[in-house]
Design a protein around this nucleic acid. Structure first.
Lengths: 242, 242
DNA sequence: CAGTGGTCTAGACCACACC
DNA sequence: GTGTGGTCTAGACCACTGT
């Protein structure tokens, strides 16, 4: 797949780190790596920058490049940004089966909030799609999504019972590549309690935000109410610069 | 502050976008920008990559570089990664005053979990610091932090009543630069309810994780129970690559 | 085909850490 | 001073989009 030089180097260095083939928790300097891999120093820097951003290594100007000891101890922690859960579609959760129940499917005028979030005019219409997602027969997420009609005029309830994103990719060659989400916490409503099998004291997590296509078009505004036991969002935070 | 060429270009382009000085929602091509700013194309690419990662622009190979329309509509949404809340220290929340009440301060052997997270041996000791944070006199966060003694042997309860990170920076020249956190949701415990003035049906958000120094040393393992109304974590997610 | 972004090179010079 | 990572250059060549 990734035949790009810098990606191969990323993979190779990652493997060496995991195999404990790196002595002193320290990588060779960039100029040596450049020679060893037979690429320019720029390419090495590109690879190391990715690894640094993933928190796997730390670079210190004047000193060298070091391995994050925690990565060795527990590198399963180092999968970030919603890979555990949180994607509207593509939830597959390691070996467990995921199903969808369609709760509601309508076409309606875009409210002011929706207009703003999807960059629509006041006369635009959107699909309002409400779905309940199960993983291994347990209800996990109540998801309400809004999609502009003009972007997918051919959508049907049937399509919506599985992954909309996959459908878009394979049929329309439109790919969802980015999203901006906020995460909040709230007590469960009676509807949450019924659909997600919660008691009154059990809460939900709320992930809401907008998904974008690769050309920058806002594609879907989505609000997900997540069973509290199944929301686990991992992230890395940089406390620095601009 | 940032006299680096690529940072200046980032700021300048951002300003032009906000001032609507960019026609057609489209930036000039990289080679033109390179000439216009009097820098190499590589430097332009570096700047554009940062803007793209922030979601402000989208690049399409073969077509050009385009502005995310949502950024114009509501660029306040585009401040990410815990800037709203979530940092253990440095919570200053725009104009509101923040105070700290010290609930507990102990030295104890590191438990197995703490050993793992802070990369310690079984004979190492840690501070256990439990604090209640207020913003504008409202209790917001119950924070329990663990810090290896050997990293800051001189810590005192007095220091701990304000920002530990600031103290570390100014006194020991050790800077906290990165953290890996997980975000979860849970019903409130009786203790949560008392300290954060919650009812039984009101939940808390939990942010737990490890903070690292600039040399990669794990510095603090922290678990924060956050009043549900005050947890609002914004993030951007890339659905692509490696 | 021309235009655009993506990858990569080979090297200069700077800033910082450590001896 | 030596060694390290950081910034930046000038340019080659490739891959994709659109006319």
């Amino acid at each position: 797949m990734a035949d790009l030089a810098y990606r191969q180097i990323i993979q190779d260095i990652k493997k060496q780190i995991l195999n404990q083939e790196v002595t002193n928790n320290r990588l060779p300097d960039e100029r040596s790596l450049s020679e060893a891999y037979g690429v320019s120093r720029s390419t090495i820097k590109r690879a190391l920058n990715v690894l640094a951003q993933q928190g796997i290594i730390f670079k210190k100007r004047g000193s060298g490049t070091f391995i994050n000891p925690l990565y060795l101890k527990n590198h399963s922690l180092f999968q970030f940004d919603g890979n555990n859960l949180g994607m509207t579609d593509n939830i597959s959760m390691a070996g467990q089966k995921s199903t969808i129940q369609l709760l509601d499917y309508q076409v309606q005028p875009a409210s002011l909030e929706i207009q703003q979030n999807l960059f629509l005019n006041e006369h635009d219409f959107v699909y309002r799609i409400k779905r309940l997602r199960f993983v291994d027969d347990s209800p996990i997420i109540i998801e309400t999504g809004y999609i502009p009609i003009k972007l997918v005029p051919e959508l049907t309830p049937n399509i919506v019972k599985s992954s909309i994103f996959n459908y878009m990719d394979s049929e329309d060659h439109k790919r969802v590549i980015k999203s901006f989400m906020s995460i909040q916490v709230a007590p469960s409503t009676p509807e949450d309690q019924e659909l997600l099998s919660l008691t009154a004291t059990e809460p939900v997590g709320i992930m809401a935000g907008t998904f974008f296509l690769d050309d920058g078009t806002p594609f879907e505004f989505s609000s997900m109410r997540v069973h509290y036991r199944y929301l686990n969002y991992n992230t890395s935070i940089d406390l620095a610069e601009d």
